[in-house]
Design a protein around this nucleic acid. Structure first.
Lengths: 159, 159
DNA sequence: GGTTCCGTACTCGGATAGTTGTTGTCCGAGTAATGAGGG
DNA sequence: CCCTCATTACTCGGACAACAACTATCCGAGTACGGAACC
């Protein structure tokens, strides 16, 4: 089991966008420069965030991305679901109904599989924890120098 | 993000082994027959459980697998970690130190990254939930007819 | 008849291909600035 | 001098390869049973 790196990229980019929120829309190349990321692939991940309604994209020259909502209204769960997809990590294939289970009565399978239930419960705890933290919380915990450093780097390497 | 199907296979096979624990070691082909799984690939997954100390393998003819510990001493976390690997789902690449972060003082990175901390917290909740459930709990929740059905199917399709 | 030994069949173990998902890249559609031209 | 408009350069959006991980499989090492030969 593994999580794509797009999650880390997306979260850090959202934080940067929050610190630069009074600036014009930030294009992909600038965001990529802030973290030395491959620009085009980063754009792909940002597009996923746009489809999820987390970012707002402005096309054309002087275009770019900005946050679509206030940081306090964006949970980590939103970002993770947008990048990694909404499907659950554990996918029950109902193998309990195969082989030996084929002889059982159908109504025995009305209740969900115990294995799937346990896995689902764990995943729910994970989702709940992610949904309990917002970008605003991360902004508050960030080092005091980070915002200014982002802005400085942004303007220095600006057009 | 996705979880391998080996987790579901491993858990169901462990439950079946618990119900058949007074039998001789169960070979791979029999276990595969219980759930209509590809026998050779299932063996690969079971080998991972052996390496983790969850199962005990007996080589040679009349060999097979059996539980290495009591079901109450095997948590779902053990099985998941054995099959999916012990590494964490979220892997922090420390991109905060790249680009704009390169200008920051080194001691600012003494504290862990806030993004990584948040993700780690969520994953810890997931692990904690998995570690709180044992195979014995799943055995207790299983339908009453399941154990007999497994044994019956096992003896019918036996040698 | 009992014992020993060998052949055989069966099982685990690790090394080897095929397929799906993730990573990385490219080209086309669309937009605002920019400069020239005209009023 | 101000307004209009075509040109241009830049950015997002989705379609196209390269790589890695997961899935699936095959062959070798080891072991217990079964039978035959021998005592």
């Amino acid at each position: 089991m593994r999580m794509g790196e797009g999650v880390e990229w997306g979260l850090h980019c959202c934080l940067a966008l929050a610190w630069l929120e009074d600036e014009a829309p930030v294009p992909t190349g600038r965001l990529a420069g802030l973290f030395e990321l491959p620009p085009v692939y980063l754009k792909k991940q940002l597009q996923a965030l746009v489809r999820a309604g987390i970012l707002q994209s402005v096309p054309g020259v002087r275009g770019g991305f900005r946050l679509a909502r206030a940081p306090a209204e964006i949970t980590l769960m939103d970002v993770v679901a947008a990048v990694e997809g909404p499907s659950e990590a554990f996918r029950c294939a109902e193998i309990r109904q195969k082989g030996a289970g084929a002889e059982a009565s159908a109504r025995e399978f009305a209740r969900p599989c115990g294995v799937a239930t346990a896995m689902r419960r764990a995943e729910l705890a994970w989702r709940r924890e992610l949904a309990g933290q917002t970008l605003a919380d991360l902004l508050a915990e960030a080092p005091p120098g980070a915002p200014g450093r982002i802005r400085r780097h942004y303007e220095r390497h600006g057009a």
